[in-house]
Amino acid sequence: MVIEDPKTNKLIEVEKLPDGTYKVTIYDKKTGEKKTITMSKKDLEKLLKAL
């Protein structure tokens, strides 16, 4: 799943891993910076609600 946040000009890509956690990659379209973090479903839901 890919989500675009027009306010921050970032793309957020979410991928479910076999162990039940989620790999979240955040791309900054302005700088080209890429950050990848792994989080639980509960933390991911908090992140998505904040957008």
Rank of each mutant, 00 (worst) to 15 (best):
Y22C: 07
D28N: 05
T8A: 12
T36L: 08
A50Q: 04
K46R: 06
A50L: 04
I12H: 06
K46V: 12
K35D: 15
K35L: 06
V14D: 00
V24K: 00
T8Q: 11
L44Y: 09
L11W: 04
E13W: 13
K49M: 11
T38L: 12
K10Q: 13
K30I: 08
T25H: 06
L48E: 03
T36G: 07
K30W: 14
V2H: 09
V14L: 12
L48F: 05
L17A: 12
L17E: 03
L51G: 04
V14H: 06
D19W: 07
V24L: 10
Y22K: 00
T38F: 07
N9E: 09
T21F: 05
D19C: 08
D19Y: 02
K16I: 13
E45S: 07
P18L: 07
E33T: 07
K42A: 13
G32V: 00
K29I: 07
L47N: 00
E15Y: 11
A50Y: 10
L44S: 01
Y22N: 11
G32E: 11
T8G: 14
V24Y: 01
L44T: 02
K30N: 11
D28E: 06
T31A: 05
L11N: 09
T21N: 07
D28P: 01
L11D: 04
S40M: 03
S40I: 10
D5W: 02
E45Y: 02
E4N: 02
T8M: 03
L51D: 09
K30T: 15
K29S: 10
M39Y: 03
T38M: 12
Y27R: 02
D28M: 01
K42I: 13
P18Q: 12
Y27T: 13
T21Y: 04
T21L: 11
V2E: 14
T21G: 14
T25I: 10
K30A: 09
E13I: 05
D28F: 01
K7I: 11
E45D: 07
L51P: 05
D43C: 10
K34A: 08
L51E: 11
L47Q: 01
A50I: 03
E13K: 05
E4K: 00
N9Y: 07
Y22D: 00
I26C: 12
L51Y: 01
K7D: 14
K34S: 12
K34Y: 10
K41T: 12
K46D: 15
L48P: 00
E45M: 04
I12C: 01
K7H: 15
K16W: 06
V14M: 15
E33V: 14
G20A: 13
L17F: 13
P18V: 12
E33W: 04
L44R: 00
E45W: 03
D43F: 02
K16R: 14
K42G: 14
K10V: 12
E4Y: 05
E4T: 02
D5R: 00
V24D: 00
M39W: 02
K29G: 05
K29E: 12
E45P: 00
K23L: 07
G32H: 08
D43E: 12
T38W: 07
K34R: 08
K23S: 08
D28Q: 01
